[in-house]
Every structure is written in C-alpha cells, then in structure tokens.
C-alpha cells in the first residue's frame, strides 16, 4: 500500500484505541522506532494502535511535534514544555509511559520514567499500591517484618495521595 502524499510530505494515519484517527506527517512518527520500522518495511499509510487511548495518543503526538521543532535556540522553551508535558495526573502519566514504551520513543521514555519515579518516591506503600493497582500478597506479619528490617524507610512525611 503506497502512502498518500501532499506535495513532498508523506501523510500517515494513526488509529487510537477508540478508533479516533489522527493524520500527521510521516516524518513525525519516525521518532518512534516501532512506527519507523512499520513505515519503512511495510509502506503502510494507516496504523491501528488499539492498545493506546486516544487521549494518550493526542499527548504523544503533541510531543512529537514539539520535539521535531527543537533547535538549539528554543531549548529552554522545550524544557518547559517537557515539564508541563508530565504535569498530568499520575494515572495519565503511567498510560503515556506505557504507550511510549510500546512505541519505542527512547528519549521520551527516559523522561517519563524519571517523572514517574520523582512522583512516587516519597509516597506511602498504600498509595503506590493504589496507583499500580496491586493487591498485597504478603501477610500482615510479613509486612511488619519488613518494616522492622528497615524502619528508616518508613520514617518521615510520606505522601498518601495517588495523583
């Protein structure tokens, strides 16, 4: 299947999980290792991404556009954009991180993982369980044993919020 073109720019359609379509220049998606391989090897013009929510895809496309415009002179502006980019509720940040990992956008993945780490590092065990939707499979006795092992890890002001 040949890609459609306007002038010299190739156009590509990405289909999000809820079938919403996003039309963008092919050059933008080349930042994703996964999409780059699909485009180069199979010459597709439409790529379904059923595992990625449209809301998440909108954010990622926004990043791809900004990143493509990055020059030495607007570095500061880009840094501010990045800061704002991860300034979303944790739930959404995790969705983005997982999608970015799937799409293999390496620079952004690192940035997202660091942002998640910064956000959870001072959180309580209960909060992190809620965030990652984990049910404890330790007995209360085992858990209190952990607390006794390294009491300093449970000291200080721990954050109980999940966002």
């Amino acid at each position: 299947m040949a890609s459609s073109t306007t002038g010299e720019k190739k156009i590509l359609t990405l289909k999000g999980g809820d079938n919403e379509e996003f039309i963008l220049e092919e050059s933008l998606v080349l930042q994703s290792e996964l999409l780059k391989n699909m485009v180069k090897e199979e010459r597709v013009s439409s790529i379904p991404l059923p595992s990625i929510k449209s809301k998440t895809l909108v954010k990622i496309i926004e990043y791809l556009k900004k990143h493509a415009e990055l020059t030495p002179s607007n570095k500061e502006e880009f840094k501010n954009f990045e800061k704002e980019f991860v300034n979303v509720v944790l739930e959404e940040l995790l969705d983005i991180t997982v999608a970015v990992n799937y799409l293999k956008i390496n620079g952004l993945l690192e940035f997202c993982c660091q942002a998640v780490a910064d956000r959870i590092k001072d959180k309580s065990v209960e909060a992190v369980r809620k965030i990652f939707r984990i049910e404890s499979d330790f007995t209360p006795e085992e858990e209190s044993e952990f607390r006794k092992e390294t009491p300093e890890a449970f000291e200080g002001d721990l954050d109980d919020t999940t966002n």
Partner: peptide, 14 residues
Amino acid sequence: RLPVKSLMRFKCLS
C-alpha cells in the same frame, strides 16, 4: 531511578 529508601519501602508492595 528510585533512592534505596523508597525501594526498601516498596519491597513490601507485593
């Protein structure tokens, strides 16, 4: 990317 203090807490997640 987490400090050891956080990891020592999160080891009891599961």
